[in-house]
Each structure stands twice: as structure tokens, then as C-alpha cells.
């Protein structure tokens, strides 16, 4: 059994965790920056980087103390190397490099998205490759075929906004503050999902991709019309997202059958309505449904430690001069989907 220190700093959560290759989570510390960014209605990169620089080492120290371990007990140091806000990524990656060098342990530079993508395997020992993954987060909305560690084939992606971004923008329109996803979900539970007529971009389209920009604009117009209550708007928005996700996913599952498991990951996967929908989709395709617990869906260091563990066991370590990457698609060979706003 190997022990991995995981470090995460790519967006607005600083985190450190100690993970065993036996799937034990020995420690997990997380410091969110919600307070630092809330007056700005979104994450400010320089503010995020400053906060990571302040918090990351104390978090690692606390995680080691929680586990009653030292750096010498670790077998490798894993740090997020991208994609994300580069200033923050650099903080965590340089910290990881310095720890690895000082302790004489290998460095594993982890793709944050691989952290999300492999996170279900941390909590489900039965989840074998290959599997079908819906990755829904603040910066991404993709369907990927996961064939193994480092082996991803992107089957669909958003041509404009990510789904988490759509939740965050809707929250902003409704004055719910940041981060928006959980607040929109809460408000939606008290509204009527059929109250507001909203578009379902790309529904039944022959291309496999997603689109959410038009939905967000429609929410803004409906809100400005003054004809609808906030709860009905939130509920109708969430329903439109559900319909789009389901339609696009069904299409991909029809065209790429044969997968035993349907897996969801990323921050938006903590949404209960989306999880419930995915469960029925999986059942109707005779697939097993796997979703990590909500805390493992949003950004955290346990998933980085776990991805580090999987890579370490596969013999994949990295040199100390490796560069942080603001953009880093899981499938480097994926064709460019139409649209300019695609993040990966």
C-alpha cells in the first residue's frame, strides 16, 4: 500500500489530503475562499492566488498532523498542475515540487479534470475501466469514455458555457450570490419547473454537444420581464438543464453502447435532481450508476491524491521542472467542437 499527499489549488478551494492506494482517506483539509470572492460575484484570479499562497502550506501541515504522519511516510506528492487559474495552480504545484524534492519522493503532476474523472473509483472499488463519464463542473460539461488512467476519449462537450457556469450565472441573475449552484438547487425545490417557458438548446440535435448560453440569456429575459417568481425561475432553469443533459447523454449512450457503468463527477454532480435523473437513465440502459458523495464532487484534494495514487501505481511520475497548464484537456486529440468559448 502506498500513501499519497494530494494538493489542490486550481480555483477557489485550497486543499490537502492524504490518500492510500487502498482507498483509505487518512486526512482531508479544505479551505474555501467563498468569503474572499463573494463581493465580486465570481472568482478573482489574483485574490484566489493570494489566498492559496497563504493557506496551502498550513493545510498540508494540518493534514499530516490529522493523520499523525510525516512527509517521510508519503510515497509520492501529487499536486494539481492544471487546468485552472494559473496563479493558484503554480502555488500548489511549486509547493508540491519543493516537498517532493526535500523529502526525496516522486512528484505526480495531476490534471484536475482527471482528479474529477477518477474520483468515483476512490469510493467504489468495484468501478472498473472502461466507463462512461458525465463531467459537469464550473468550467466543463463533457461526456467522456474512460478507458484507463490517462486514457480518455471525449464524446461530447459544451460549445459555449459550462453547466456549472450556467448555474452560477442564473444565481447571479436571481441575486443569490456566489457560488450559485447549491443556492439555485435549494430555491428550485420550492418552485414550479413548468412555470417559465425556457429553451433547451441543441435538444435532439444530430451533433452530440451541449449548449447553455442561450438558456442563461432566456433566464435573464424572463427575470427582467417581471412575470415570474424567483423560485419558479430557478426550478424551470434546473428542469431545462436536466432535459438537455438527459437528451444529450441518451444520444451518446445510444451511439456508444456497451459500457457497464454510468459515472458522474464534478461540482454539478452534487445536485440531487441531476443525480436522480442520471440514475434513471443508467437503469434504462441497464448500466450501473456511480456518483461520488457531494463533498467529493466539488473541488477537493482527496480526488487529486487519488488520481496521484492511480498514476503513481501506473508508474507515471513527473520531473521537477514541469510547467503548470492553464488549459489541459483530458482528451488532447479531441476535435474542436464548434464555438469559441469552449474551455477544453
Amino acid at each position: 500500500m502506498a500513501l499519497i499527499l494530494g494538493i489542490e489549488s486550481s480555483c477557489d478551494e485550497s486543499a490537502a489530503a492524504i490518500i492510500g492506494t487502498d482507498r483509505t482517506i487518512y486526512a482531508h483539509r479544505l479551505q474555501t475562499q467563498e468569503d474572499e470572492h463573494k463581493d465580486y460575484g465570481g472568482v478573482v484570479p489574483e485574490i484566489a492566488a493570494r489566498a492559496h499562497a497563504q493557506h496551502i502550506t498550513p493545510l498540508i501541515e494540518a493534514a499530516l498532523a490529522d493523520a499523525d504522519m510525516t512527509l517521510n511516510d508519503m510515497d509520492a506528492i501529487a499536486a494539481t498542475a492544471g487546468p485552472g487559474l494559473i496563479g493558484g495552480v503554480m502555488v500548489g504545484l511549486v509547493t508540491g515540487k519543493a516537498l517532493a524534492m526535500a523529502a526525496g519522493k516522486p512528484l505526480v503532476a495531476v490534471n484536475h479534470l482527471e482528479g474529477h474523472a477518477l474520483s468515483p473509483r476512490l469510493v467504489d472499488a468495484e468501478l472498473d475501466f472502461p466507463y462512461m463519464l458525465l463531467l459537469v463542473s464550473g468550467g466543463h460539461c463533457q461526456i467522456l469514455r474512460v478507458d484507463g488512467v490517462g486514457q480518455y476519449r471525449r464524446l461530447a462537450t459544451t460549445i459555449d458555457d459550462a453547466v456549472g457556469e450556467a448555474f452560477d450565472k442564473t444565481a447571479k441573475i436571481l441575486g443569490l450570490g456566489y457560488p450559485g449552484g447549491p443556492q439555485v438547487e435549494k430555491l428550485a425545490s420550492t418552485g414550479d419547473p413548468k412555470a417559465v417557458p425556457l429553451p433547451r438548446p441543441l435538444l435532439r440535435s444530430t451533433e452530440p454537444h451541449f449548449s447553455f448560453a442561450g438558456l442563461k440569456s432566456a433566464v435573464l429575459r424572463a427575470h427582467q420581464s417581471g412575470d415570474y417568481g424567483d423560485a419558479d425561475l430557478a426550478a424551470s432553469f434546473q428542469q431545462a438543464v436536466l432535459d438537455c443533459l438527459q437528451d444529450r447523454l441518451e444520444k451518446t449512450l445510444r451511439e456508444h453502447g456497451g459500457m457497464k457503468s454510468l459515472v458522474v463527477a464534478g461540482g454539478v454532480a452534487s445536485n440531487a435532481a441531476i443525480r436522480a435523473m442520471l440514475k434513471t437513465v443508467a437503469a434504462s440502459h441497464g448500466m450501473r450508476f456511480v456518483a461520488p458523495p457531494p463533498w467529493l464532487c466539488t473541488d477537493n484534494a482527496a480526488m487529486i491524491g487519488w488520481a496521484g495514487a492511480e498514476r503513481f501505481e501506473a508508474g507515471l511520475t513527473d520531473p521537477l521542472d514541469i510547467a503548470a497548464r492553464p488549459r489541459w484537456p483530458l482528451d488532447e486529440h479531441a476535435e474542436k467542437a464548434r464555438g469559441a468559448g469552449v474551455k477544453a
Binding site: R50, V91, A102
Partner: peptide, 19 residues
């Protein structure tokens, strides 16, 4: 440089912890 400062301080603090 904001970035430069953070690179140096992050490495220094990490080494301080390790040693």
C-alpha cells in the same frame, strides 16, 4: 512580481515544513 513572490514563498514555506 506577484507570481514571482508566490513562487519563492511557496517553495520556501514548503521546504520549511519539510525540513
Amino acid at each position: 512580481s506577484f507570481t514571482g513572490l508566490r513562487v519563492g514563498l511557496s517553495a520556501a514555506k514548503a521546504l520549511g515544513l519539510a525540513w
